[in-house]
Simulated assay, not measured.
Amino acid sequence: MSQALQRIDDARLALIGALAERNWDAVGELDTNCRVVIDEVLSEPPVDEDALREKLESLLVVYQQLLEVTTGERQAIFEEMSQINQAKSASKVYHLFG
């Protein structure tokens, strides 16, 4: 495997690890690194196009998983904030009549 393809694979594996740990700081840094790696790979002399396509598609799958997880996390936070706001409102009513 060429060095360029290995760098894409390494970036993908690192993203998978950070996603599994829900380490959002690492995900942000790795996303930036992935963009740099892809830019570098695409600016280098051509590599095996089929292998490159396969590696980029596997990286895309990780990004799709990342999007699903972050959407779920955002929804969970929204629901939790809604419950907190409802509890605050109930507390205010209780204090008014208590």
Rank of each mutant, 00 (worst) to 15 (best):
G72E: 15
N85H: 04
K92Q: 14
A11T: 14
A11V: 14
V62K: 02
N23C: 02
V47T: 09
G17C: 07
K88P: 06
S2P: 09
L5A: 03
C34A: 07
E29H: 11
E40N: 10
V47A: 04
E54A: 14
H95W: 00
F78W: 02
Q75C: 02
E44Y: 08
V69Q: 15
V62Y: 00
K55P: 01
R7H: 11
A14S: 14
D31A: 10
Q6P: 05
L56A: 05
N23H: 03
R22G: 05
V62M: 02
G72L: 10
Q64T: 12
D31G: 11
T32C: 11
K92G: 08
Q65L: 09
T71H: 13
L30W: 04
D9H: 09
E49Q: 09
Q65P: 00
V27C: 14
E57C: 07
D31C: 07
Q65Y: 02
R74S: 10
L56T: 05
L19S: 09
L52Y: 03
Q86L: 11
A14R: 06
V37S: 05
V36A: 04
Q86V: 08
E40Y: 12
L30G: 04
L13K: 04
P46T: 07
M1P: 11
R35S: 11
V69F: 06
E54C: 07
I84P: 02
D39K: 15
C34I: 00
F97H: 09
Q86A: 15
E79Q: 11
R74E: 05
F78D: 12
L56P: 00
I8G: 01
G28V: 06
H95G: 04
I84V: 15
Q64I: 12
A20L: 06
M81G: 13
A18W: 01
C34E: 02
E79G: 06
L67K: 07
Y63K: 07
L56D: 02
L56F: 05
L30S: 06
L13W: 00
Q65V: 03
E40V: 10
G28H: 09
A87N: 06
L66I: 03
K55F: 01
V27A: 07
D31H: 09
C34L: 03
M1Q: 07
Q65D: 15
D9P: 01
P45V: 01
Y94H: 12
R53N: 12
D25N: 14
S82P: 00
S89W: 00
L15V: 13
L30Y: 05
Y94F: 15
G72T: 11
S91M: 10
I8T: 09
W24G: 03
S43W: 04
V36L: 12
R12L: 06
Y94E: 15
G98D: 10
T71W: 08
G98V: 08
A87L: 12
E44S: 11
R22M: 08
L52P: 01
E57V: 08
I77M: 11
V47I: 14
V41Y: 05
A14K: 08
L5I: 14
E44F: 10
V27N: 10
S58K: 03
V27M: 08
Y94D: 14
R53Q: 09
L13P: 01
K88M: 15
S2L: 10
L42A: 04
S43Y: 05
L96D: 15
V37G: 00
L96A: 15
H95D: 13
H95M: 03
S2A: 06
P45T: 01
A18Y: 02
E73W: 03
A87C: 11
L15Y: 07
E57L: 13
